[in-house]
Simulated assay, not measured.
Amino acid sequence: MTSNGRIIPGGISCREVVELVTEYLDGALSDADTERMEEHLKLCPPCVEYVDQIRATAQLAAVAAVELELRPDRDTLLRVFREFKAGG
């Protein structure tokens, strides 16, 4: 499929990849949409890099959440982070 003379691998655009990435990584896409996404990723290195970055971010966030729950100083860490984020 083409758009403005450009080939769109798998029939979905890079913008659609961005919109669908969370559902894709969660395994929540239909079989047809998963197939289209994977076809796009076979031919679009920038989208592969984007999906890999989102996957890594999600994994790091999950590890951080578990780490915070396991640490007895969780409340202190959260307070310090909020103060840092607020500029204080």
Rank of each mutant, 00 (worst) to 15 (best):
M1H: 13
T2G: 06
R6L: 14
R6G: 03
I8Q: 15
I8M: 15
I8A: 08
G11N: 08
I12R: 05
I12D: 09
S13C: 03
R15P: 02
E16R: 15
V18Q: 12
V18N: 03
E19C: 03
L20H: 10
V21C: 04
V21D: 03
V21H: 03
T22D: 15
T22N: 13
E23T: 01
E23F: 08
L25C: 04
L25P: 08
L25A: 03
D26C: 02
D26Q: 10
G27C: 04
G27Y: 10
L29G: 05
A32W: 09
A32C: 02
A32I: 11
A32L: 14
E35K: 13
E35F: 13
M37F: 14
E39T: 14
H40G: 04
L41N: 07
L41H: 06
P45Q: 10
P45L: 10
P45A: 11
P46H: 08
C47N: 07
V48K: 06
V48C: 06
V51K: 07
V51H: 08
I54R: 13
R55S: 15
A58Y: 07
Q59S: 12
L60M: 09
A61C: 03
V63M: 12
V63K: 13
A64R: 11
A65D: 15
A65E: 15
V66L: 15
V66H: 06
E67W: 03
L68A: 06
L68T: 05
L68Q: 11
L68G: 08
L70W: 01
R71F: 04
P72A: 07
P72W: 01
P72N: 03
P72Q: 04
D75S: 05
D75V: 01
T76C: 00
T76S: 00
L77S: 00
L78S: 00
L78V: 05
R79K: 05
R79H: 05
R79G: 00
V80T: 09
V80S: 01
E83H: 05
E83I: 01
F84S: 11
K85F: 07
G87H: 05
G87W: 08
G88R: 14
